[in-house]
Nucleic acid binder design. Structure first.
Lengths: 146, 146
DNA sequence: GTAGATAACTTGCAAAATGAAAGTGAGTTT
DNA sequence: AAACTCACTTTCATTTTGCAAGTTATCTAC
């Protein structure tokens, strides 16, 4: 059923990078440090497109570039990704931004609407840093409003 | 990061079957109709165990059987699975229980605590049918409480 | 108590998917 | 027009998967 599209190592990572980092182009995915091979990347982008999750739109200013963008169906994966992020932060001690992510648990709905707003407005700034900067304050304010 | 465990076709399906169908044993997974090969199943069960997501406990009454059970870390995947289920129901027209699942969206927290209760109490009855029977009524009652 | 199931795996091997590296071709900069 | 960038293809070695057929330890029936 619905797990079929994500039964591989890369597809969800691509969706995540589109959603919370500001990735748009083939090059950005390729050099993102995860080390995906270009043939696999091309294949996954094509399959995600076929599944109606992303949509390629050529850039006007530069005819070589293609901007991949999440569809509505794609952005609707935000809750899944967020829950997975929270789960990972809770159970895998590794990451540095763990405590930050765990705070997200309390503001799930707020973050989800922020993610969707960014998508609607084509805001490509990475999500995490913006939260890192402004969100800590705001979280503090809403929780124990001095 | 946290996506590594689920970067394959079977692991999430196994977790799902443990969580919402009442699967416990190797045999049940093997004959579940999804068609997983026994070598792959053995491998995935081992990897899920290594990741601390499931835990094998031999059955007392039958020394051949091993009951695989989700750990706390495993059951904490419930929100992810539920969101994925809802996403699938919303965007993949295929399944019959779609409308049922979509109703779950409104009772997310209730369902999640039900899933965890079943886990704690080792209630192995499949989740969906029980909802199919009793939940429709209950959903109706809480929403437009006549 | 032994013959035959049953459960949980292994093993062997062919087919498919993946990864690394090098190429291609259209579009852009200088 | 030469060099460069971007989004792919192609090739080929390696890895992973899927299928079928064991294997071992435990039951169950006679």
């Amino acid at each position: 059923m619905c797990l079929e599209v994500f039964g591989d190592r890369w597809s969800l990572l691509i969706v995540r990078d589109l959603m919370v980092r500001g990735y748009r182009t083939f090059k950005e995915f390729q050099t993102s440090g995860e080390g995906i091979a270009t043939n696999i990347l091309a294949d996954r982008l094509q399959k995600l497109e076929a599944a109606g999750i992303i949509n390629p739109e050529p850039e006007e200013t530069d005819g070589r570039k293609i901007n991949y963008r999440l569809t509505q169906k794609g952005i609707d994966l935000a809750p899944v990704l967020l829950d997975l992020l929270i789960w990972g932060a809770r159970h895998e001690p590794a990451d540095a931004s763990c405590s930050l992510i765990l705070k997200m648990d309390k503001n799930r709905d707020q973050i989800l609407s922020e993610v969707e707003r960014r998508w609607r407005e084509r805001d490509s700034t990475p999500l995490i840093p913006s939260f890192d900067a402004g969100m800590a304050r705001q979280l503090g304010r809403t929780q124990r409003h001095k």
